[in-house]
Each structure stands twice: as C-alpha cells, then as structure tokens.
C-alpha cells in the first residue's frame, strides 16, 4: 500500500500530511505535525499519556491508525490554551500541585476536558472513572482528582458570571 495524503482538522486548523499505511495518529501528530504534547507512554493503549480528543471524544492516539480518522477534528493539549492563556483545567492543575514529572499531564488534561465538556458538574466518582485509563506514577492520583473537580467548579463559576 502506498503512502497517502491525510487531512485532519487539528486544533481548529486544517492540516495535510503524508502518512505511511498504518501509521498512528500519535506518530502523525508528533512527527508529521510537530505537536509533541501527547506522549508515547506505552504504545499499547494502556497508559493514556497520548490521549487526544477526536470529534470531542478521548482516544488513545497510539492505537488509532491515522487514515481511519481522516477528515475529522482532533484536539490536542496545544489547542487548549487559547492565545497563550491557560484554561480552567490547566490553571487548576498548576494551582492544585497536580503535576510532578509532567509526563502523564497532557493525557490527564485532555480526559478532563472531554469530561467537563460533557458534564460541567461531575461527581468525584465521575472524575475517577474518567481518568481511570490514565497512569500516573508520581502523584497517587488524589491531587489530579481534586484539580479536575476544582476546574469544574471554576468553569461553572465562569459560565454563571
């Protein structure tokens, strides 16, 4: 099979690139488009560090053949801070000391974005479930759960204002 030109809408911008057959969305983002926020933690779909949103749904980009999502909308962590301003989730992760080594952070934030887009007022159990596919080896998870709940609170506050 020859390589083909794949077109994606990435963080709101249409991007085209040449993809070899079977190349993953993760490899395409990182190596063809230079978007390195999503990380390769396991390449087995089991750690969540490569999570991006495809049409708003969280997907582990390491398991997605890029040609299967051609034409669709992909959101990565680079697209979250609009105009360089951190959003509520990012700010809450900073304020709640929810990062240590930072390697799982991109995946955690993207999962949180998808959750809060879907449900602006999640319970703690909802947050726990949302991040249950994401591995963090440093924090013990508690600060991340708190940060996401804090982000939800702040976002609701911003909306009501």
């Amino acid at each position: 099979m020859p390589s083909q030109i794949v077109s994606l809408v990435v963080n709101g911008e249409r991007r085209e690139f040449i993809a070899a057959p079977g190349v993953t969305l993760l490899a395409s983002l990182r190596e063809s488009l230079g978007l390195t926020a999503a990380k390769r933690g396991c390449a087995q779909g089991a750690c969540g560090t490569c999570t991006v949103l495809v049409d708003g749904r969280p997907e582990v980009a390491c398991l997605v053949a890029v040609e299967t999502v051609a034409g669709r909308s992909v959101r990565t962590l680079e697209g979250v801070a609009a105009g360089g301003e951190l959003d509520e989730v990012q700010n809450a992760f900073v304020d709640c000391f929810a990062t240590q080594c930072g390697f799982c952070t991109a995946g955690m934030i993207m999962v949180a974005e998808a959750l809060l887009d879907r449900d602006p007022d999640p319970s703690e159990a909802d947050v726990v479930e949302a991040i249950s596919g994401n591995v963090c080896r440093c924090t013990g998870y508690r600060p991340i759960v708190i940060a996401i709940l804090e982000a939800a609170r702040r976002r609701r506050g911003a909306v009501s204002r």
Partner: peptide, 11 residues
Amino acid sequence: DFAGYLMPGPA
C-alpha cells in the same frame, strides 16, 4: 504492559 502490571488506580 500496564494491563498485566497492576497498580492502584484513582478508585
């Protein structure tokens, strides 16, 4: 992999 190497998750 992380499916076989178990660690406590957030729950």
